[in-house]
Design a binder for these strands. Structure first.
Length: 648
DNA sequence: AGCACGCCGACT
DNA sequence: GTCGGCGTGCTC
């Protein structure tokens, strides 16, 4: 029996439709006589009043007992994902509690052409495309069996990656290389082209649709065996896949923000399992999770550690306890800066807060200017005399008069980077200060100006970590206590990583062999801060803390968010859900419900529940069972089944 | 998500 | 009497 006869026997297909509210239900459509649609085919179908995209997820030959509509169009079958990628989608949709359609959607590039199916007109499907799923495959993202980890600075990691990539390509295997952000692709391409002159396929969301489509096709056909890109490239249809490289595996950018928030590292792991390929992770400051996998022997570290730079950094932790809160630059830091500038050298000051002050408070009545749509105060930006919401972007001019009591004096509360500039200028007149943050118009320009003068000072946020900076002698962290105070179990890890990266930035900038790293903090004994001088100890303490409390990677953690326009309703449903989940108690811990860290965003009220258990299947089971019991049309629920959970 | 159906308040 | 509010439920 040939394929054609096989396909033509089925007049009906089950379609999973790409409509969020419909979940994973299948709908049956008719296929015109003489046409045939393989498993996984992307189709357009009439759904309700509109046309919607969907995917073929089953076949039958008997007419159902309701009126069936017909499939209206089929997308170019040259783009049909291979079996193992369809299976990948199924594994991941289960892992993330999402729909099949949402994950199969990642397997198609944009701008694929579709052709209409007219009744009675058949078409030729590509030879060899199969109708049904062929073989049984794993059901979970799986472990890191056979996977490797390399720790060290970028140049060191890339040397190793290239050796492994060459090995794979030389033996006819395909390779995917993932980097956390688009701007890092250039450097990756340069490293690869130094020794490889075959085709390299770029895969990232900034590429024009047609280009993405062509890259995708050349991977599908095997014309190109090497894909390089950001997180969406984890789905690229590389043939005969032998290796996936994930650089900076700890980056939060691998986790997609919008639902379903898949993590490209998990996707890589799942593919490693399904396609029996190697996964190679690399990092300068590995995540606690990766540390755990290495400890368990599930990830093999390939070389002990970094060849040290010949640079000596002294660490100074300045306790800000018991000092006036208005002190921005402590006496100790001031003296360190003075020495550096007197020697004609450069310094960097780091602060993780934009604007001039976190908020304005009326001195007469205590009123604070709040965002009209979010439950956060508006930050004051003196540069343009604007009040800005750092959550939703809302802007207004700063008020002259208090809307509550008509008072005219405002007190700034908390300091942001703009205020540090004026403080700095008072203390060090004559030393040029450059400012680098999200409000900077041309970051490259700022860095250039910083490079062109010495002494000088760069005042910056996290943004600095993406740049090459000129030689710097000292780096001062003005505060990181706000980060440490986030109600999130991973806050210590994030602060530790931030500080490690800042030390590395300082070390690596070149120049002076004797450098100073100064941290001002209200938590001088915290392991995230002391750990910077002894990284091993950080991993030990943090792992112990998480193990004690069953936090990932020692247990599963789901974040469930309820949102809606009616605050009482949202709260009620969240409470009902929590109570039901508690009832289940299969060794489940229910944390909450409580209002989200930002209880109102864009006019929607938000409540949160965290579910903790040793086994993630227990949590999946609860969500699947409880939500249908308590669901309400005015409340939306979204589940995030994998860390890192964003804050807010 | 859209979009209809359906059942109660104030209007030419 | 009807126009229209948005709560509820369906989409092959």
């Amino acid at each position: 029996m040939n394929v054609k006869t096989n396909l033509s026997g089925f007049r009906y297909v089950d379609v999973v439709v790409d409509v969020p509210a419909v979940g994973d239900r299948k709908f049956t459509y008719q296929v015109p006589e003489g046409s045939a649609l393989p498993y996984g085919a992307k189709v357009q179908v009439p759904f309700g009043r509109k046309q919607t995209d969907g995917y073929v997820a089953g076949h039958s030959s008997v007419k159902p007992d309701f009126d069936v509509k017909s499939v209206s169009a089929v997308y170019d079958l040259r783009f049909l994902p291979p079996d193992h990628l369809l299976r990948l989608g199924e594994v991941l949709k289960e892992h993330y509690l999402a729909s099949t359609a949402s994950f199969w959607g990642y397997l198609w590039p944009p701008l694929v052409r579709r052709r209409h199916l007219e009744p009675g007109t058949g078409f030729d499907e590509p030879a060899g495309c199969r109708l049904l799923r062929t073989k049984q495959m794993p059901t979970a993202p799986g472990s890191f069996a056979g996977s490797l980890f390399i720790q060290g600075p970028a140049s060191f990691r890339w040397d190793y990656y290239c050796a492994k990539i060459k090995e794979a390509l030389d033996s006819g295997l395909g390779v995917i290389v993932l980097v956390p952000e688009i701007r890092k692709i250039d450097a990756a391409i340069r490293a690869l082209q130094a020794w490889y002159n075959g085709p390299i396929s770029l895969v990232h969301s900034d590429l024009p649709g047609a280009a993405r489509r062509e890259q995708w096709l050349s991977l599908l056909t095997g014309d190109s065996m090497l894909a390089v890109g950001t997180r969406s490239a984890a789905f690229s249809p590389v043939k005969n896949l032998g290796l996936i490289v994930v650089d900076e595996e700890e980056s939060h950018l691998y986790k997609a923000g919008e639902f379903p928030g898949y993590n490209a590292v998990t996707v890589a792991r799942a593919r490693g399992n399904l396609e029996n390929c190697r996964v190679l992770l690399g990092s300068f400051v590995p995540s606690v999770k990766t540390g755990y996998f290495i400890n368990k022997g599930r990830l093999k570290p390939v070389k002990p550690s970094t060849p040290g730079l010949n640079v000596n950094v002294t660490h100074e932790t300045i306790s800000m306890l018991g000092r006036k809160r208005r002190v921005v630059i402590s006496k100790e830091l001031h003296l360190a800066l003075r020495d550096i500038f007197n020697d004609g050298e450069r310094a960097v000051l780091f602060l993780n807060r934009r604007g001039t002050s976190s908020s304005l408070v009326c001195t007469d009545c205590g009123n604070t200017i709040m965002c009209p749509r979010c439950s956060v105060s508006l930050a004051y930006h003196a540069r343009d005399s604007q009040m800005v919401c750092h959550t939703c972007g809302y802007r207004r001019t700063a008020p002259l008069e208090c809307p509550v009591c008509r008072g005219h004096t405002w007190k700034p509360v908390g300091y942001g980077i703009d205020r540090v500039v004026s403080e700095f200028e008072k203390r060090f007149p004559g030393v040029p200060v450059l400012q680098l943050d999200q409000d900077s118009e041309s970051p490259e320009n700022v860095i250039e100006q910083f490079r062109s003068s010495s002494p000088s000072c760069l005042l910056c946020t996290q943004m600095v970590l993406g740049f090459e900076i000129p030689p710097v002698t000292g780096l001062g962290v003005l505060s990181c206590d706000n980060l440490l105070g986030f109600p999130d179990y991973s806050a210590p890890e994030q602060v530790f990583r931030l500080l490690m990266n800042l030390v590395h930035l300082l070390k690596n900038s070149g120049g002076n062999q004797q450098k100073r790293f100064v941290v001002q903090t209200l938590n001088p004994q915290h392991h995230a801060i002391t750990g910077v001088q002894d990284p091993e100890s950080f991993y030990v303490v943090e792992s112990q803390n998480r193990a004690d409390l069953n936090y990932p990677p020692f247990g599963a953690l789901f974040k469930i968010e309820f949102s809606g326009k009616n605050p009482d309703m949202v709260r009620q449903i969240a409470e009902k859900f929590a109570a039901e989940a508690e009832n289940h108690s299969n060794g489940v811990q229910v944390l909450g419900p409580g209002p989200a860290p930002k209880p109102r965003v864009r006019g929607r009220y938000r409540w949160i529940i965290m579910l903790k258990s040793k086994k993630r299947e227990v949590l999946s089971g609860i969500v699947k069972q409880v939500w249908p019991e308590v669901s309400h049309s005015q409340v939306r629920m979204t589940v995030d089944t994998e860390e890192p959970f964003g804050i807010g």
